[in-house]
Design a protein around this nucleic acid. Structure first.
Lengths: 220, 220
DNA sequence: TCCCCTCAGGTTGTACGCAACGTAGGGTGC
DNA sequence: GCACCCTACGTTGCGTACAACCTGAGGGGA
């Protein structure tokens, strides 16, 4: 009874990895929080081994920091760190967006357009506004775009800069004007892709990330 | 007697990580080679546990690929992959070089100049030419530069694109003209940094990587 | 002859136990 | 009273045993 054999479907270590990553990205595990292996193992109902592997991989991604015999902590980023992360994201994601223009099919564009439109709806001020739901859709939009770039190297480099940084976890920080800009950018990116103009799409993405940077880390 | 307790100084898993990474980077472990945990463990005189951790981290770096219950293989890159990797390196390393211009002290520049000069010497055609020694010096030059950029995010992103790719492991592929250009670039980068001109330095670095790309993957 | 099923071999995935390390607290000597 | 040492505890690092899984070969049936 103590050890529930029937658990999730996937490998235990992958479940641990996914759960921990989600907990960190959503802020459920605060930055700087100490992560004990036994504590996490008990919480997830696993042994220390898969938890340990998950922590190792998270450390490689940069989400946690491990020190000697003292365990792991959730990485906390300084203002300069965040600034640099946005710098890299701007360079890389705009590049990926340009490449996406060469590979996106009509179906892909319809899918992206649907995401952009949906975000426009639930992001609009009013009773139906749902800022929390935006997070998932936004992640989906950027992930889809990165996928369309068909450039594993770009994806790997971006993953090195914190797997969709802590920075993408909320839209509550956006003021109305910035939020409207951000959502309009998504639509414009799709338009640029439809026009087959990679440079245009890349420019909008660069603006998009600049806008996000201003919101999340403030003016330079 | 069988288990030699007195081994290296550092943690066992870090030794395994370093040894495996070196073996892959030098080509001692060929691309596509199957990496059995027990085999590696015996070879390194350790148990499977630290080997397993090392493989996990190498997988995160992109040097090995793991599949289901089938173990790990040394990643092999297609022509397109290499092309994309150089693309990212050009974007990121030139950026890092520009930043280095803002942080490098006179001592730093002297150090870089010494490296560049030394490479010029042992890279020059003649009896003293030592292409193998260039590898280490070149790695050192680029690493020092990346360090001077003081941008952990840039370093992390670059690390995601294969920790100094398999691509930097030899200079034997260079024809005399390309090699001369490459070595001259190092010197010119130092000159640009001395002049405090980050844009110049970045441009040279971009050229430097373009040159390397042409040698390693051929014309586009 | 071809296909499918079964089984054996080898591999990875997980759990658990022990040892090493770092840390904090109390006690003792100066 | 203060500083230093020593001890005890909690943690991580590693080794080993067992279970789950994939793969390939061989035999039987259609």
């Amino acid at each position: 009874m103590a050890t529930t054999v029937e658990r999730g479907a996937g490998r235990a270590s992958e479940r641990a990895l996914a759960d921990l990553r989600e907990a960190i990205l959503t802020g459920d595990l605060a930055a700087g929080a100490h992560l004990g292996e036994v504590e996490l193992a008990e919480r997830l109902g696993l042994s220390r081994t898969p938890v340990r592997e998950a922590l190792t991989r998270l450390a490689a991604e940069g989400l946690v920091e491990t020190t000697a015999h003292r365990g792991a902590r959730v990485t906390s980023f300084s203002r300069d760190d965040l600034d640099a992360i946005f710098d890299v994201r701007r360079a890389l994601e705009s590049r990926a967006t340009a490449r996406a223009a060469d590979h996106a099919t009509a179906d892909d564009l319809d899918e992206l357009a649907a995401l952009a439109d949906r975000m426009l709806e639930i992001g609009a001020p009013g009773p139906d506004q749902d800022l929390d739901a935006l997070v998932g859709l936004n992640r989906g939009f950027h992930a889809r775009l990165l996928d369309l770039a068909q450039a594993p190297a770009l994806a790997a480099a971006l993953a090195g800069v914190v797997h969709t940084p802590v920075v993408t976890r909320t839209f509550h920080a956006y003021d109305p004007a910035s939020l409207a800009r951000s959502l309009a950018h998504h639509v414009e990116i799709v338009a640029a892709l439809r026009a087959g103009d990679g440079d245009w799409a890349a420019a909008v993405m660069a603006s998009h990330i600049g806008n996000a940077r201003a919101v999340m880390v403030g003016s330079r």
